[in-house]
Design a binder for these strands. Sequence first.
DNA 1: GTCTGTTACGTTAAACGTAATAATG
DNA 2: CATTATTACGTTTAACGTAACAGAC
Lengths: 98, 98
Amino acid sequence: MIHLTVLRTFIAVLDHGSIIEASRNCGYSPAAVSRQMSALQARLGVRLFEPDGRGIRPRPIAEELAVGARRLLDECDQFDDYAKGLCTSQNVHSLVLV
Amino acid sequence: MIHLTVLRTFIAVLDHGSIIEASRNCGYSPAAVSRQMSALQARLGVRLFEPDGRGIRPRPIAEELAVGARRLLDECDQFDDYAKGLCTSQNVHSLVLV
DNA sequence: GTCTGTTACGTTAAACGTAATAATG
DNA sequence: CATTATTACGTTTAACGTAACAGAC
């Protein structure tokens, strides 16, 4: 099954344009981010990034994948809100009725 | 962040009506399923199940949560298909063009 | 020489299974 | 006594950080 944490890191790498900057924003070490991207590529069977000078450049397939990834992550956030709303209303009920 | 594996297990428990049956269908031990449900309840701050005879009975809040959970899991599956489709077409291109 | 990404190595922490326990039918 | 769920215990394994390494400016 797909790992949401890896997907979030993937988006961070695209947004920041480098492994190091993404690692700073995700609370991971650069090594961890690099490994997550390697694992994602291995899982998909596709290279998402190419070397570019000292850094990396996303391949077109990476931008395409990001479209669906961003959407899925948004829906996960929506579910979290949905669940949180359900459960706080639940607690209000018990507060009132008990 | 929410764990998709736990969400899948949660749906399996609802579908099968017991920890043991869910565990058989998920490839987990009953203890693992029980712990996953305990962790989910702790995370949400809500009891999702109640004891019922020798088994458990989902509380109404569990069924409500399941609506959003099923939708999210479906969207994850759709993303997997989407990603797989992107990457196979990518591989076809490289097969043709290289 | 500095900066970025990757890989090797050891460690840590989350999650598991087995087995023991409690409770119900 | 059989069945279900939970908890305790030890183990395994996935993922991490540090550090060493390789390539680009």
